[in-house]
Design a binder for these strands. Sequence first.
DNA 1: CTCCTATCCCTAGCGCCGCTAGAAAACGAG
DNA 2: CTCGTTTTCTAGCGGCGCTAGGGATAGGAG
Lengths: 195, 195
Amino acid sequence: MTIQTRRERERAERERLIVTAARELAEAEGWDAVTTRRLAEEIEYSQPVLYSHFKGKGAIMAAVAVQGCADLADELRAARTAAGSAREALAAVGGAYTAFARRRPALYDAIFTLPVDLPFATPEAPAALQDAFGELLQAVEPIAAEGEDTGLLTETYWAGLHGLVTLMRSGRLPEEAHERRLALLIGHFVPQGMD
Amino acid sequence: MTIQTRRERERAERERLIVTAARELAEAEGWDAVTTRRLAEEIEYSQPVLYSHFKGKGAIMAAVAVQGCADLADELRAARTAAGSAREALAAVGGAYTAFARRRPALYDAIFTLPVDLPFATPEAPAALQDAFGELLQAVEPIAAEGEDTGLLTETYWAGLHGLVTLMRSGRLPEEAHERRLALLIGHFVPQGMD
DNA sequence: CTCCTATCCCTAGCGCCGCTAGAAAACGAG
DNA sequence: CTCGTTTTCTAGCGGCGCTAGGGATAGGAG
């Protein structure tokens, strides 16, 4: 029993090592630099070892995405709980979201951009994803108008943030006006009487 | 002189052929299927011929993007001019934009998603891109509140549309609620007194 | 008609990718 | 020590974007 458990522990440790190496390499040099050969070299094992832990490169990226999403959820929560009014909370969460995307682009891409098949808008979605969305939801809920579906409104606000971030990061929107665009988005999601 | 012009004409024709083949292949089987080998086979020339016309695969994709963007601009214009009120125009343009993205995903990706280095928010941007943005701009302009920067507001609305489309297409937002999310976005961009 | 030159285009191949089959090594049990 | 199992590695497959270098070919000169 102890031998078995030791092996399982070592395996789990190595799995962590793979995910961490993938994340660090992606954050340092971008996802293009994350190849299975490079990753194997980084963890000091041969390539096929990766495939004994994950189904393929996509699964490794998905693991990085889930792990990164927990960070995002933390930052969103911190921003939301530190804010005073409902409007401030919405703005704080929006700011934290876009700041995360700009500060950790590789992580953001893994979670929200790259075609990595994670279940998203379903109960089977990883807890970290649901947590992050939940933070947005809690920030949006107080500013929803009567009769508005809070979930849908959150998704729409999220889409706005995501659009701003991706268009800017791909060079399609100029960086320097980001804060003003973000303010416009937030302003249009806060009901008239509340600002 | 005539020989020279004939050759140039033939070259131009072949270039059109390449771009068309790339677009059709991408629309039929996705961009992953568009490899230089496959493309060469499609146009019945060898691979290196592609590189005598374009700097690389990215340049071919950029050409497809520009060509596709003209289509998008046309559809946006048609939607806008057919609409009655300012609110209807905004909704019509938003609907046409997302419909285009869903109907021609490969084209949309080439224009707005894939990392293809085209100048965007500058005067050197291709005319088709500026036209498409101009259509959005004309739809947004009438609903801008006093003191709001129309350009920035358009960019923000655009980001909202783009976010909705990309998150939905990557499976991160459920398809079936798209119209309701779009309506929410539009509703939040129309001033209170105008709807 | 022949030869020369310049242009064009193709064959072949480089280094890389994700992934995998099958050999080799390490390890625990008897 | 030997055997069977489990783990890990070496080697390689097919495909990618891209390019060097060698013919084929076409147009002008004699």
